[in-house]
Design a protein around this nucleic acid. Structure first.
Length: 480
DNA sequence: ATGTGC
């Protein structure tokens, strides 16, 4: 079946609902022409159309320029559902609940760091376990875990693993309202306890970067970002705990008579928000999100320790302050203007970043005047970005932007195309030092198996949903 | 993504 795609703006494409009776609304994808031609090569546009058939969808089913094939819903997708008449779907959040990004700024220049770069990366590699099934150095018990699930970053502040400033710069202040540990299974708990403070595998990484260029000096200053300074970017989520929560609820929904029948793909399994099972999933999903915030925060704590040990500098000279920590796999209750009316919706962002401009009450106090930072990891050989939301994100995409470069080659295709040794030597030639838990992941994560992040951010900027603040290039990489 | 799958 040929999917009908109409270009309706410089960076905007429409998949009209008229082409399939089951679609309740249009699909909209933001991309430039070259990204759109590669998007058409996988089946993610069909997934955008599938999401458009779900009950209670408000506005279009949206795809970002980094869109690619995912479980049921596309990765790089945004979909909002009416709070009273709509659904929640675990596949619309993803298996890695609160997969997200944390960015740390520093007072160091690359010259300050260069002589010690390998040592710092090696020390981080030692202090932050990575790889599938990695176990951490933070020893927590069941009571701690319960507090983490219920309170998120507040637990880390109480334990001395987070500062007040860290909390001020974490989305939701690191604590999701409505988190309910009672609905997190013991299996999920048992997977989470040994894994807290670990990076995981796949596209999860920790990168030492240098700010190559600041495009928006005023906003960069407010974010603590300076050209030529070193930053650290962390990309990970809620590890096996969130994965188990997703698994548990997908299984329950598939067995429940309360789930939404008649969806075009079994992986779109959903429940009306009003139902008990939906509310239990929401409580568990928010608790897993709290675990994700704490997981990244413990890694921040380990990164600070690694720099202190290797650089022999006091904390105040290192200036390793949070810029922001955000979730790009999550569903949130928000109010949005739709056709001139205020509507309460559940916004699913799966591989999509909230990008609220100044003026939204959800912005953290520190970022009221600017809008919060939008952190966009690219690939390990090219670049990452910091953006900020524009008012256009509210009118176009329920206050959302892209979340990264987006895969272009499948993992198997990447493995056969890029041997690990070649990836390592090419990175070395660019002055990038890599430590990875497995060779397999080095091939799978080869830079050119990703779309060009420059084009992805140019597309969301061109579409008027976010503005580019700064471009960061990698110098040290830790990979699962 | 994931104690990686039939």
């Amino acid at each position: 079946m040929e999917i009908r795609v109409e270009k309706v703006g410089g960076f905007k494409f429409r998949l009209p609902s008229s082409q399939w009776p089951r679609m309740r609304t249009d699909g909209i994808v933001y991309a430039n022409d070259s990204l759109m031609s590669s998007i058409k090569n996988d089946n993610s546009l069909l997934q955008v159309m599938n999401v458009a058939t779900l009950p209670g969808i408000v506005g279009p089913s949206i795809g970002m320029p980094d869109i690619h094939w995912g479980y049921g819903f596309p990765i790089g997708g945004v979909a909002a559902f009416d709070y009273d008449e709509g659904i929640v779907s675990p596949g619309g959040v993803g298996y890695d609940i609160n997969c997200g990004v944390t960015l740390i700024r520093s007072s160091l220049t690359l010259n300050d760091l260069r002589p010690k770069l390998k040592e710092v990366v090696d020390e981080i590699f030692r202090l932050v376990p990575s790889g599938v099934g990695s176990k951490g150095r933070y020893s927590i018990g069941h009571q701690d875990l319960n507090n983490i699930l219920a309170e998120g970053i507040d637990w880390a502040v109480n334990r001395g693993y987070a500062t007040e400033d860290d909390r001020e710069k974490t989305e939701e202040y690191g604590r999701m309202e409505g988190a309910d540990p009672a609905h997190v299974s013991s299996e999920a708990r048992n997977r989470g306890i040994p894994q807290i403070g670990t990076l995981g595998a796949g596209n999860h990484f920790l990168e030492i970067q240098v700010v190559e260029r600041v495009m928006d000096p005023g906003t960069a200053r407010a974010f603590g970002i300076e050209e030529g300074k070193v930053t650290v970017m962390i990309h990970t989520g809620s590890r096996g705990l969130g994965h188990q929560v997703a698994t548990d609820y997908i299984k329950r929904l598939n067995e429940s008579s309360d789930s939404v029948r008649d969806v075009p793909d079994r992986q779109l399994t959903s429940a009306f928000l009003k139902s008990r099972i939906a509310q239990e999933y929401m409580g568990a999903m928010r608790a897993a999100a709290n675990f994700g915030f704490v997981n990244r925060q413990l890694i921040v704590n380990s990164v600070r320790e690694a720099f202190r040990r290797v650089m022999h500098l006091p904390a105040e000279d290192l200036g390793l302050d949070l810029v922001y920590s955000l979730a790009h796999n999550i569903a949130k209750v928000e109010e949005h203007d739709v056709d001139g009316k205020k509507v309460k919706v559940l916004v699913h962002r799966k591989g999509a970043t909230r990008a609220f401009p100044a003026g939204r009450k959800e912005n953290n106090r520190k970022y009221r005047e600017t809008g919060h930072p939008v952190l966009i990891p690219g690939d390990m050989g090219r670049a990452s970005y910091v953006l900020v939301g524009l008012p256009g994100s509210l009118s176009e995409s329920f206050g959302s932007s892209c979340h990264g470069a987006g895969r272009m080659l499948s993992r198997s295709k990447a493995t056969s195309t890029y041997p690990a040794s070649r990836v390592i030597s090419e990175l070395e030639q660019k002055g990038i030092y890599l430590r990875a838990a497995s060779k397999k992941v080095v091939s799978e994560e080869a830079p050119y198996s990703y779309k060009d992040v420059d084009e992805v951010v140019a597309s969301v900027a061109g579409a008027g949903i976010s503005r580019i603040v700064s471009r960061h290039i990698p110098v040290g990489v830790v990979k699962g």
